[in-house]
């Protein structure tokens, strides 16, 4: 399967697809340039928009509506069961655990990641090693969730606590060094969910730091200088100058991370597979849809996800608008 010929074939296919796509775009540009007369602009605009609108209608709008419709059907997608699936989500014990975990992700991650990111942004601001220091924290952003999960799974690795067996996971080794006994970190609920959240904090702190650092640097010098001449204390400077000035950015960071947390999937699936009471909505959606073949419940979970995302996104956009207006 993985012979060099098939790899070359794949790359050739890719080049072919890109060329085909360029040809389509070229054709659109050419056709649009032929438009003449009073309606020429209109024709051009619709031609430019045509591929986008078709793709979004077929690939986003229709599937979205279709999923909403299917969420009212049973596991096989045959019998109409009204709000049955939603009832399951909000009453069955397993599903309530899933909802509870999702709430934990959404509440804990944004605040801790933003807190760490803000603290670090302040600490390294204008220091000699600022760029390197920032890159260190920011690098996890470039690593895939799957890669990050493997990195941290190794930290949490557990070896049975017997005679000659040495721990190879850093966390357990640290515990052993201070005289404790090693733990199966990813098995014991509810701590395992918090340890998964740590991975996400590790990834998101860099994002928070970058945005907040940019906001801090945008604070006008004269305000800072005035406050400094007034002899404001460090805490006062942070509380009454920095924080009010970067508040819109903080809100955007918090909400952006929160939206991402609603959809967290990769980390849970890679580290525990949703076992040991760690599942979250997006993981449960995948399991129900593609593993348990419960289409109706899977669809309903996706819709719940959608409904939970909307208010945060709307709030986020309003804040974004406000911060742009400033």
């Amino acid at each position: 399967m993985s012979s060099p010929e098939s790899n070359a074939g794949k790359l050739a296919l890719m080049l072919g697809a890109i060329l085909l796509f360029c040809a389509v775009v070229g054709l659109i540009l050419f056709l649009a340039s032929l438009a003449r007369g009073k309606r020429a602009d209109r024709v051009t605009a619709y031609l430019y928009l045509a591929p986008t609108l078709i793709m979004l209608a077929v690939g986003l709008v229709y599937p979205g509506l279709r999923t909403i419709w299917e969420s009212f059907f049973d596991a096989a997608g045959k019998a109409f069961i009204g709000f049955g699936n939603y009832e399951t989500i909000f009453t069955s014990g397993d599903q309530l655990t899933v909802l509870g975990n999702t709430v934990l992700w959404v509440l804990v991650t944004p605040f801790v990641a933003t807190g760490v990111g803000l603290l670090y942004a302040i600490l390294v601001d204008k220091s000699r090693f600022e760029n390197v220091a920032k890159a260190l924290i920011f690098l996890p952003m470039a690593i895939s969730f799957v890669g990050a999960s493997i990195i941290w799974k190794f930290i949490y690795e557990y070896r049975p606590d017997q005679g000659n067996v040495k721990q190879i996971g850093l966390l357990n080794q640290l515990l052993v060094w201070v005289g404790g006994s090693p733990q199966q970190w990813l098995v014991n609920s509810p701590w395992n969910t918090l340890l998964l959240i740590v991975v996400m904090i590790w990834i998101q702190a860099g994002f928070a730091m970058t945005v907040l650092s940019a906001a801090i640097k945008a604070i006008p010098d004269d305000i800072v200088e005035a406050a400094r001449l007034d002899g404001v204390t460090a805490w006062g400077m942070f509380r009454f100058v920095t924080l009010p000035a970067i508040r819109p950015a903080v809100v955007v960071v918090l909400t952006t991370i929160a939206i991402g947390m609603l959809k967290v999937f990769d980390i849970v699936r890679t580290m525990t597979g949703g076992q040991f009471n760690t599942s979250v909505i997006a993981n449960e959606f995948y399991s129900q849809s593609f593993r348990s073949d419960n289409q109706g419940l899977g669809a309903a979970l996706a819709v719940v996800l959608f409904l939970l995302v909307i208010p945060i996104v709307v709030y986020n956009i309003r804040q974004l608008r406000r911060s742009e207006a400033l």
Partner: peptide, 25 residues
Amino acid sequence: DISTAEVAKRKLSSPWASLAAIVIA
């Protein structure tokens, strides 16, 4: 080129600030 963060940091007694930054890094 003095920013709020710098003032805050300077007054946070520098060694502790550096230590915290190093620990996080």
